[in-house]
Each structure stands twice: as structure tokens, then as C-alpha cells.
Write a protein that binds this DNA or RNA. Sequence first.
DNA 1: GAGACACTGTGTACGCTAGACACAGTTTGC
DNA 2: GCAAACTGTGTCTAGCGTACACAGTGTCTC
Lengths: 242, 242
Amino acid sequence: MDRTLAGDERTMAMLWGLRTQPTRGPRPTLDLDRIAQAALGIADKEGLAAVSMQRVASDLDVTKMALYRYVSSKTELLAAMIDLAIGPPPDLSQVAGGWRARLEEWARLLSASWRDHPWIPGATMGRRVMGPNEVGWVEAAVAALADTGLDGTEQMDSVLLMSGHIRNTQSSSSAGSFPWTTDGRLSPTLADVFENQPERYPALSKAISSATDSGRREDPREYGLRRILDGLELVIAARSAV
Amino acid sequence: MDRTLAGDERTMAMLWGLRTQPTRGPRPTLDLDRIAQAALGIADKEGLAAVSMQRVASDLDVTKMALYRYVSSKTELLAAMIDLAIGPPPDLSQVAGGWRARLEEWARLLSASWRDHPWIPGATMGRRVMGPNEVGWVEAAVAALADTGLDGTEQMDSVLLMSGHIRNTQSSSSAGSFPWTTDGRLSPTLADVFENQPERYPALSKAISSATDSGRREDPREYGLRRILDGLELVIAARSAV
DNA sequence: GAGACACTGTGTACGCTAGACACAGTTTGC
DNA sequence: GCAAACTGTGTCTAGCGTACACAGTGTCTC
């Protein structure tokens, strides 16, 4: 079990399948994949908060302490669950249209994949350990930028920018707008502020009323994505002009 | 205390100072602001996880149940703490250079403000209620875009894009790069993969080695910000050309 | 002034969490 | 055959958010 490894490195070894499995002892009734699968099912159906060691264990008909034979902490279980949920990366090499079309497809696929796992944005904030699937998605996007003239740092920063945008627009609500909304509608308190005290937030009040007037509700994710890709196109054009 | 209001609306009423304070009864020893301040101090010094009702209460020399006289749940306390941490929005009207210079300044100020509260990105994911300060920051950014020809929806989506980027690059690490790092360094396991099995992630391996070679570590936040602003500039130019 | 009322902070209790540890049972290598 | 290594279980602790009953305190009404 490589108990000598501490924390992150132990988790890395698990995620990347570097565990040496024992020869002696009783046959394990579980394996890491079944555990991660069970946790994933709970998270998808009932939300991330419903995933407790107890709950996962009971779904697998074992006691919660049995899980600790396969996973050193809940954090580690979540890491396994996240990489399982992210799933294998796509192959974009057949997408026609150059880097931009590939990144668009990449974003579309990533977003679609996350739609089934709405807890992912929240779970993938902060410091954590990446699994092979997640790195694979990064690889796919970086590969799309390989021949653009961007250097390695720029390629990775571009992917970081893209994936961050997907995460943001996936999370803040299912529609992906500001979190002042319940079901896409303004809270009564805020609606009152914008309507009856427009001088408090003049630009915002105006923007909101013009937005509700026109009604043409474009997807904030698409909007942001287009801006980002436009921005990338500029720097890429600059690089290849040199 | 407006007990009739449920959940979010109750929290809104608190954040926006719409609570009717009672006349009878003993003098309260606390007030919402002191509680939020105490919670904020704990979060800044010891992280968001250290903020428990017990801990906040003991810092204020009361029992934890006393806090529930001022706050209906921990979620509500966090909302108050977040808006306090975000702080009053800046006045950008004196910034010269048009919308782009204003948004750059806005991003710089927001990022600087969040630097003292590294827990904010994680705490502001998911669904929640916005306070007056947070709305004020949005107002400041929307105001910068008021005369650009963008419609209300586009203005708000642009601000969402900007703030999301700040949050992403603030959180994933203090340096703001991919979360495969401990102290900005690759984990031994990943370093091994990229060095000894470059065929597994060819584009990424190449990008990483070229990045470490050049060493010119540009800030991923600045990089992304520039791309976003460039993208916005394009659409704004298109709007004003019409 | 007397009482009702509304509010205060406290103490106790409940169900939940992650995880440490000791233990008995099972499989394998020597 | 026996020791070593591993399994799942049961028990335990410390902590969490929060519901609820309670005694004390201030004010408003009569």
C-alpha cells in the first residue's frame, strides 16, 4: 500500500495505478474503481454533499472503515471520483478547421461531459491532485495549440484560461449567469433595488432592464468562449507574423 | 427578525440591512458586523475550514448558539463574511484611457483585494446570494462598459467572464497555474511521466519542457486577462463600427 | 407600578461527519 | 504447519451544524 508515501504522492500513486497489490491475505471484496463508481453515482444523483464515507460504504454493503483499505482519506476518494467523472479525453486530431475549431469542439465536449456532473466545478477548485484523464484533456487542448507558434507556457496558460471559463459558466447556475438568481430570476429584494433605486447601481440597472427588454438570451458561455478564442487568435496571428 | 422569510430571501434581507431591529428585550451583546468580522479574521488567518460556529463564538466570548440570534445558518454567516471581505467597490470614473484601462484597473484591484482572502474563490462557487459590496463591484465594471455599444446582456456577460478569470487564476494556486503542482513544482510522479514517458502526453511534455527551458514565467492571470480584453476589444469595435 | 410580551444568551441534546485503533478471520509464502 | 500479511468489522473520539427548552432582561401597555 506504500504507506511510506505521504499525502499527495500517495494519492498520485493511486490515481495513476502505481499501487503494488499484495499477494497474501483474503481476497478483497472491492476495488478502487467500484468505490469511485459508487461515489460518482451518489454525487450525480444527490449532489456532492451526499457523498460521505458512510453513504458510499452502505451502497457497497460494507462498513465505512473497509473503504480505508483502498483509500487513505476522503480527499483521495474524491480525487478518484473526479478523474472517473471527467472521463477519457477526446481525440481531436480528426477535427477539421485548425486550432480554433478543435478548441471549440474541445470546449463543447468538456462542457457536455460536465453537464452530467454539476458538482465538478465546485470540487475542482483549490489545490488538488490531477488524474490521468484530467491530464489527458489538457493534453488534447495543448495538442490543438501545438503548431500555432505559441510557446509552451502560452499554450498551457491558454488551456487554463479555457478550462477555467468552462468551469465558471458551468457552475454559477445551470444557465450560467450571475449568482443573484434563483431559477434564473432576480431575487425579490434585488429586483426591488434595481427597479426602485436605480440610482444605487445605475449602469447595472440599465443593463438589466435592457437585457430583459431584448430577451435575446445568448448563452454566457458561448459569449465568453468567443471572446477568448478571438483573443487567442490575435496573439497567434502575431506569433506567426514574426 | 422576519422569520417568515425563507432561506435566500431571509439572507438577502440580512445582507442588505433590511432587518427590523426589536425594541424590547435585553441589549444584544453582539451585532452582525462584529460576527462577520470575527469570522473573516479566522478565515484569513487559518483558512475557511477553520471557520466553525463554535470557533467564531469562542472568539467573541459567547456560546455558539448565541450566534443564531443574529444569523439563521452558517451559510448566512458565510454570505455576510464574503461581502465584508470583498469590500466596497472602487471608483473607476477617474481612470483615464477608456473602458479597457478601467477594466484593467478593476481586475488589478479585485485581484489585490482577493489576495488577502485566498479562500474567496472557493467560497464563491456555486449558488449563493450576493451582497451589496459584490453587486457594487459588478456595477463598477458594467459602468466601465456602458458606452461601448455592448448591450446589457453583453456587458454583464463580459463582467462575468472577467471576474471568473480572476477567480480561477487566484485560486488554483498562489502562482495561478495548473493544479498538478506543489509549491509550483511538478509532483515527482508527474515529472516522471513527462520525462520518461513523453509519448503518453506528447504535446504537454513538449510544452512543459519548453516552458521550463525558457524560464520566462509570465503570470497566467495577466496572459489570460490580455486575451479576454483583446477579445472584448474586437466585439466592441464591431459594435461601434455599425 | 404591574404584568405581559419579546427578546437575550445558555445548556443540553441529536444526528451526522472523518478517521484512529484493536481485533478476528483468511489467504499465501516459506 | 506456521508466520506474515492482508481483509472487513466494531468501537471509539472529537468535531460539526442546529433544534429546543429555559432563565434572565428590557420595554410597552394598562
